[in-house]
């Protein structure tokens, strides 16, 4: 489109180019206070992507060291994306999630969710491909309730065909209280031979 414009109205486009562009293109960003836990925007560092490999390695190791330091702090709020019973849930400490459908754990069971896909804090995230290193993060949860959903209606009707069916059903639901999300392993240093220490229920 632009090239077409350039061909048809070369003069016009030249005029556009010669116009002075305002120096301040970016709008003023004020600290966003939609969420009470975000008092100020996350501080960042400038990382030039065209740096040499050795320098990038250095930066990488530095990042890992910083994350490791951050993680030592118990009060650091962490979030995780876990894969439970065919669905993915974004959770933090103290969350309650509901798993729908038949799922064996009973009320009062304490379980650990092992399929962790993403774990992150305020200024870093560790993203798995698709799961993060086994044994790096431990997500503990308690099954607090096993119940059934409200009665759902399945109604189908075909017009002018004397066809009408109605079914009612309720889905089993399991409520999970997330107790803790914490780092237990070492970042970027997986064990050579991984051993099954915990059992996860799909």
């Amino acid at each position: 489109m632009t090239s077409l414009l350039r061909n048809i109205f070369p003069k016009f486009t030249c005029m556009l180019k010669s116009r002075t562009v305002p120096k301040k293109l970016l709008p003023n960003i004020t600290p966003l206070n939609f969420f009470s836990n975000v008092p100020s925007p996350t501080p960042y560092e400038i990382v030039d992507q065209n740096e040499k490999n050795s320098e990038r390695e250095l930066i990488k190791s530095d990042i890992i060291r910083k994350i490791t330091e951050k993680v030592q702090n118990e009060g650091e709020p962490l979030f995780a994306v876990v894969h439970v019973a065919g669905k993915q849930f974004k959770i933090t400490r103290g969350d309650i999630i509901v798993i729908e459908g038949y799922w064996p754990p009973d009320a009062g069971d304490k379980i650990s969710l092992d399929k962790v896909m993403i774990v992150g804090a305020k200024d870093f995230s560790i993203i798995g491909k698709p799961l993060i290193q086994n044994g790096l993060v431990r997500v503990d949860a308690t099954v607090i309730e096993k119940t059934v959903s409200h009665t759902k209606t399945h109604f189908k009707k075909k017009r002018r065909k004397q066809y009408k069916r109605i079914n009612f059903y309720r889905i089993p639901q399991t409520k999970l209280q997330i107790n803790t999300i914490r780092f237990v392993g070492e970042i970027n240093n997986p064990p050579d031979v991984s051993e099954v220490k915990t059992r996860s229920i799909k």
């Binding site: 975000v38 996350t42 962490l78 849930f89 509901v98 009973d106 009320a107 995230s125 096993k146 409200h150």
Partner: peptide, 29 residues
């Protein structure tokens, strides 16, 4: 057994969200 594992009477209740959190976002919007 179902009554034993329930937290209370949920008949007549429909959950609008299947997720409860005190901290909806950690990294901000």
């Amino acid at each position: 057994n179902l009554l034993k594992t329930q937290q209370g009477d949920t008949t007549g209740l429909r959950f609008r969200k299947l997720w409860h959190t005190e901290m909806p976002s950690i990294q901000g919007p």
